[in-house]
Design a protein around this nucleic acid. Structure first.
Length: 388
RNA sequence: GGGUAGGUUGAGCAGGUGGUGAGCUCCGCUGACUGUAGAUCAGCCGUCUUCGACUGUGGGGGUUCGAUUCCCUCCCUGCCCA
């Protein structure tokens, strides 16, 4: 392996400091992100704690699983319990009892993916709350204000998502608005200790994706996020979009965050193309529905065959669930609708995902990335439900 | 022994007072889930050769062109009275 000089992405006075080196594996980097609440080794995965909780897990569970940073959500928290209340209670870290770094989403994704009654204009977006239908207004400035009230370590700009299959003119219009909103978010920032990431949009069209990348990269953000992917496009389209982003960002040493990804296989695809940060609901959501990720691929613990299986979920895992309990026990808990099923399954899947990221960092350093990638791809290519 | 209410696909039900009973909820089986309105959702859940067909309303018998329905009888269950 060739030694690469470390790249420093921001001056020391910045809210975060990111140093990285290239690895010889595509555009993959190994890095270290320093925040006021702790250090994050990259590539890294952020468990999603939408409503000031990673569902069913305590901060202690998250620490045990190896979590270094988690995600919180502007949209949900601003509606309930409200950003002002969290601020009065000492900020999101204290409120939820997590003293590590927190990245907050801006609410853009939620407004455009779930709020049905919404109207977008140049100034912002009006939408109906999913809780009570009440009208709310989100602007770039308000999105920043909310995240500052929450006390986020890393905030995201308000962006506009569109279905990538819409006509290019509509995708382009949303993209350009996202760029204008990005500049407004930068101007709206009041707390210099909060980092702010821009978000690249542009759908799956390579030209638009490249233009959006260049536009966002030209602004003085602390990090660059890639949005609008893993929303139904093909694996090839996602990989192609990441290629365009990677090529356009060549020489840019800021941390790169792929929003909403992903599956074990997708993590490899993105790391190879230079992604440093991920978040995804998949490990915790599928866990609650009985799907466990293992060194044998995915297992659905609700399947009848696991009722008599005395083995741990994953013999290669050292999490609380795998150390103390059998597949048969988990299968029983799911059948009995016992709450412990959700916690144990989530503990395992988060541990699995974070361990996978640690393994990825390890193989990026020792040169065996391709081997691990192919192993994991083979594990997850097995037909769902296939026997052991 | 008398009276009364019942017996519907694993469970619980709906419906049906002579004109095609496979409808619901559980349970069960499988699948899905990617910046979390998701401890959720979807399909299947009598049999078969499954875009359809067949069988099935406690057992047997009767009336009828046709019976889950009307009649007879038997069995089983709950309740009431002896």
């Amino acid at each position: 392996m060739t030694a690469h000089p470390p790249n420093v992405a921001a001056p020391a006075a910045a809210p975060i400091r990111f140093t990285s080196r290239s690895t010889g594996v595509g555009r993959a980097r190994l890095g270290r992100l320093e925040t006021a609440h702790g250090v994050v080794d990259t590539p890294q995965f952020m468990p999603v704690g939408t409503q000031a909780t990673v569902k069913s897990l305590t901060p202690g569970d998250l620490r045990s699983a190896g979590a270094q940073i988690i995600l919180g959500n502007t949209y949900h928290l601003s509606l309930r319990p409200t950003a002002e209340r969290i601020a009065r209670l000492g900020g999101l870290h204290r409120f939820m009892g997590w003293d590590g770094p927190i990245l907050t989403d801006s609410g853009g994704f939620q407004v455009f993916s779930l709020a049905r009654l919404r109207k977008v204009d140049e100034d912002g977006v009006t939408f109906a709350s999913h809780l009570d239908g009440a009208q709310h207004r989100l602007t770039p400035e308000r999105a920043i204000e909310i995240q500052e009230l929450l006390g986020s370590d890393i905030a995201m700009v308000l962006d506009q998502l569109v279905d990538p299959s819409l006509p290019p003119a509509e995708v382009a219009e949303a993209m350009k608005r996202t760029h204008r909103w990005a500049a407004r978010c930068l101007a709206a920032r009041r707390r210099p200790e909060m980092a702010l990431f821009g978000i690249i949009q542009g759908g799956v069209d390579p030209d638009l994706r490249g233009r959006s990348t260049a536009a966002i990269a030209a602004l003085p953000f602390d990090g660059i996020a890639i949005g609008g992917l893993s929303v139904g496009e093909s694996k090839a389209e996602m990989a192609a979009a990441l290629e365009v982003v990677g090529a356009t960002l060549a020489g840019d040493h800021r941390v790169r965050y792929l929003m909403g990804v992903g599956s074990p296989v997708d993590l490899f695809t993105a790391v190879e193309r230079g992604i440093d940060l991920f978040d995804c609901v998949l490990p915790t959501r599928v866990a609650r529905n009985g799907q466990l990720w293992t060194s044998e691929g995915r297992l659905n613990l609700r399947n009848a065959r696991f009722q008599d299986d005395p083995e741990p979920i994953d013999a290669a895992c050292r999490c609380e669930a795998c150390t103390n309990h059998s597949r048969a026990y988990l299968a029983h808990l799911f059948r009995a609708d016992e709450l412990l099923a959700y916690r144990l399954a989530s503990v395992h899947n988060v541990t699995y995902t974070l361990s996978l990221m640690a393994n990825i960092r390890s193989v990026l350093a020792d040169g065996s990335f391709d081997s691990l990638r192919d192993d994991v791809a083979a594990q997850y290519q097995r037909a769902p439900g296939a026997g052991r």
